[in-house]
Computed example of a mutant assay.
Amino acid sequence: MSKRLSIFPLPGAILFPGLQLPLHIFEPRYKALVSDALARDRKIAMVQPQKPVDGAPLYAVGCVGRIGEIEAMEDGRFNLVLEGEARFQIVRELDVTTAFRQVEAELIEDDEYEALSSVERAGFEQEARRFADVQGYSVDWDSVSRLDDQSLINGVSQIAPFDPASKQALLECDTIADRCELLIQLMQFYGLRDGGDGEIVTLQ
């Protein structure tokens, strides 16, 4: 079944089901988007544009979020937290008169109970530790070990310092196992040091 979604096309902003994304809304068209969402179902669809320019084509997959916490300021701006609910696949962009863009999309039914094998989980945690050491991150590994597989893999996918195209590829993975495998590959790539001079290699 297709669904009409109001979208917030923000480069580099990725939302995964089950996770949260804080946003500061200040542009008039997106203040209108939030006001419209609050008057209806509190839903905003996050999706990345393929280029960081106004009106750029959109990537095919995004994530619908529900407005949770929200602070409305006197000048019309909003601070809010979006709570990821479901991924979606864009069918087509709609011709609309609203200031914000809208699409026809199909929701993707992910398996909320999908889990990694013990070998996959161990391999991921080992690579994550190595990557964190290389990047100089301080991580509470005891807390990490208590996360369920989906919270761990989706959480790292959302916050990892990868470029927008890499994060989009993670979002488009259909299974947690596929996302885990791609995360490991990206951590290995980004964790490389160029010629021992301390420069971090990136996809840029």
Rank of each mutant, 00 (worst) to 15 (best):
K167N: 11
V91C: 05
P28H: 03
F100W: 08
G65K: 13
A99H: 03
Q102N: 01
Q89D: 12
Q158L: 13
S118A: 14
D95K: 13
G76Y: 13
V119L: 09
C173Y: 01
L170D: 09
Y59D: 11
L38I: 11
F162W: 12
F88N: 10
Y190L: 03
E74K: 15
W141A: 06
D174C: 01
C180L: 02
R101M: 04
G68A: 14
E120L: 02
V81I: 15
V34C: 08
G62K: 14
L147G: 06
I25T: 09
L82K: 13
E74L: 14
Q158D: 12
R121D: 05
F16V: 00
L147A: 06
P57L: 07
L5V: 01
F189L: 14
L23Y: 07
S157Y: 12
V103F: 05
P9H: 06
P49V: 05
S166Y: 07
S2V: 10
A169I: 02
S118K: 04
R40G: 01
I44T: 11
D178C: 00
K167W: 07
Y137S: 05
P28A: 04
F131L: 00
G12W: 12
A45Y: 09
A32W: 02
E109M: 00
K3C: 04
P164I: 10
E27D: 14
K3D: 09
R92M: 04
E199M: 02
A165N: 10
E74R: 13
G12I: 06
S118N: 04
N79W: 08
A56P: 10
D149G: 00
G55M: 11
L5Y: 06
I44Y: 10
S145H: 13
G55L: 10
D197M: 04
Q158I: 13
P28D: 13
I14R: 03
L5H: 04
F88D: 08
V61D: 08
P28Q: 10
F131V: 00
T202I: 03
Q168G: 07
P9F: 07
L170T: 08
D178S: 15
I7F: 07
A165Y: 10
N154V: 00
E74G: 04
